[in-house]
């Protein structure tokens, strides 16, 4: 059996990249028994997700079409009874958000933030993964050190960074001053505050990207490289034609999910700058949170924000999926 499998690997290795369309698999065993297995394997996840996320989601869509707040949703608590007085208001929550002056500027910054962060996450993560994938002295040590930012809880890291970046007694400015430069208002100037939150988020996110891609690199059969070297391919050609396509399944996932994740990256913004100074580093989620959860909670408004953010991301995912399809990936 061993030999069979290993042979299979070699065959699979050459077959990969072009002939691995889902259809070939689907056709191989398209009967009910097969579906039964697939459904059984997915069922627990589907059920839990539908209950815990699906219910709030559907309820959110409904609430977003009303004017429900914490003050007018009926409930009885002990001796107090609040009558239910909220009403259906159609799409007015959505129009109020979209036509508000803040929305477009927040959206623009959120997109910038997402694109820059994900690009840096991926670029730096891939670079480091490639370096770590080489035979190298001290590789385990490097890998350990580079993953460290991930091992520290994010909220602690955010606080530490705020401390490091403090304009007056922060270490970063102390080093800048020692080197003969002036200190910078890392967190107090709108522009530098944006640079700072991006830097912190990149610092936090690179280890995950690096590990995910390292895992992906490990999965690329070495025989492909060996064959390419025999054929005289240059390192760049090997990277371009073996590494990148081989990473694609993992890459497409981590980039897509990384984008969604960064778009909704609440803690970093909230903990590092609290959206300041003057609201300048506020992304859509933190802004929505403030709008809806400060003081008397605006359930309908928060739901409308949530749905809107979801729609934006769904559109992004659809576009992304189209682009992947054109390259032969599909799901």
């Amino acid at each position: 059996m061993t030999t069979q499998v290993v042979d299979g690997t070699a065959a699979g290795a050459t077959a990969r990249g072009r002939a691995r369309g889902p259809r070939s698999r689907g056709r191989a065993g398209g009967f009910l028994s097969r579906h039964w297995y697939a459904w059984a394997m997915c069922a627990p996840v589907v059920i839990v997700t539908l209950v815990l996320i699906g219910y709030p989601l559907v309820r959110g869509v409904y609430l977003s079409l009303t004017d429900a707040t914490e003050a007018n949703m009926g409930r009885t608590i002990g001796m107090n009874t609040i009558p239910s007085t909220y009403e259906f208001v159609g799409l007015s929550n959505y129009t109020a958000i979209v036509t508000s002056g803040e929305f477009l500027s927040r959206l623009a910054w959120t997109i910038t933030w997402t694109v820059v962060c994900v690009a840096l996450h991926y670029g730096i993560g891939l670079g480091l993964a490639l370096l770590l994938n080489r035979p190298l002295r001290l590789r385990s040590l490097y890998r350990m050190l580079l993953v460290l930012p991930w091992a520290v809880p994010a909220f602690v890291s955010a606080f530490i960074w705020r401390y490091l970046l403090n304009g007056e007694f922060g270490v970063v400015n102390a080093m800048l001053r020692a080197a003969g430069f002036g200190g910078l208002d890392w967190l107090d100037d709108p522009f530098w505050a944006k640079v700072s939150v991006i830097a912190v988020n990149v610092w936090l996110g690179v280890p995950f990207m690096m590990l995910a891609l390292l895992g992906g690199l490990q999965a690329i059969p070495r025989e492909l490289y060996e064959a390419a070297e025999v054929d005289g391919a240059t390192p760049w050609q090997r990277f371009r034609h073996i590494t990148l396509p081989g990473l694609r399944p993992v890459s497409s996932t981590v980039v897509l999910l990384g984008t969604i994740w960064t778009f909704n990256q609440f803690p970093v913004i909230y903990l590092v700058t609290r959206g300041g100074p003057g609201g300048s580093s506020e992304i859509l989620v933190t802004y929505a949170y403030r709008q809806a959860f400060e003081g008397i909670r605006n359930y309908s408004g928060s739901a409308a924000w949530g749905v809107l953010i979801l729609v934006l991301l769904v559109v992004m995912a659809v576009v992304y999926r189209r682009a992947l399809r054109r390259q032969g990936e599909a799901w």
């Binding site: 219910y55 559907v58 949703m73 009926g74 009885t76 009874t81």
Partner: peptide, 28 residues
């Protein structure tokens, strides 16, 4: 589509959703 999935969910949820009916209760 997402919308279809959401619609399917809505059916399941409407059965158990909704607000509690207001009640008056006695003073302590």
């Amino acid at each position: 589509s997402v919308a279809a999935a959401a619609a399917a969910l809505a059916l399941a949820v409407s059965a158990c959703g909704g607000e509690d009916t207001p009640q008056q209760s006695a003073a302590p």
